[in-house]
Amino acid sequence: MKRNLPLLICFVSGTVMVVQFFIPHPVSRDLYTISSKWFIVVSAFALVLAVGNLIRSHYNKLKRRLEGWPYSIVTLASLGVMAVIGLFFGVKADSTFQKIYLNIQAPLGATMFSLLAFFMASAAYRAFRARSLEATLLLVAAFVVMLGVTSLGSFIHDKVPDFAEWVLKVPNLAAQRGILFGIAFGAIATALKIILGIERGYLGGGS
């Protein structure tokens, strides 16, 4: 019961979703619409659990005065303020919630991700060495694409951007497509294993 009931739910929900795709009938479409709403609701409850876990983790850090505990106050306070503003004062375009998003969250995220450019460049400097044909091709392709999307590329030669585009649209596309096929077959095989109850990792340990 403790393992079979979840397996049954997984089998039924998975099979119904596969079958409904091939039935172009309003009932089938309604089933998809309603079940996708159920999916959103159940996922939202999982989010409550995840955020609760984050709050608990920072609260414990604060209570035990672990290293860096003052920063936990920042996380908890900002989380609380943003949630309260969003829940009680709305999330419309001109709201305080959106102003915080546009002027605090978005710049923070953009700057944080822009930092990766430096780390990627330094990692590439250490790792990229033209020791073999394969490594040289990787290096040259990266260099051509980087050069091609900047104005420096067209400054060197007006055909450099065209060549970079060709690298992206022809050999790169061929490799990505091959990898994509592999991913798709792998994902379908895994999904089938999950639906048929062969893959049971999501049930966790215990009886």
């Binding site: 953009a110 700057t111 991700f113 822009s114 930092l115 990766l116 450019a117 990627m120 460049a121 590439a124 044909l133 394969e134 490594a135 091709l137 990787l138 290096l139 040259v140 392709a141 990266a142 260099f143 051509v144 694409v145 980087m146 999307v149 900047t150 690298v167 992206l168 050999p171 790169n172 061929a174 490799a175 990505q176 091959g178 990898i179």
Partner: peptide
């Protein structure tokens, strides 16, 4: 050979996306 060109192009494109953010 195709995979290496693909990885290189993807790397270059990703770096440039980050640089554009910067």
């Amino acid at each position: 050979i195709f995979i290496m060109i693909g990885f290189g192009a993807s790397f270059g494109y990703t770096v440039m996306a980050r640089v554009s953010l910067f």
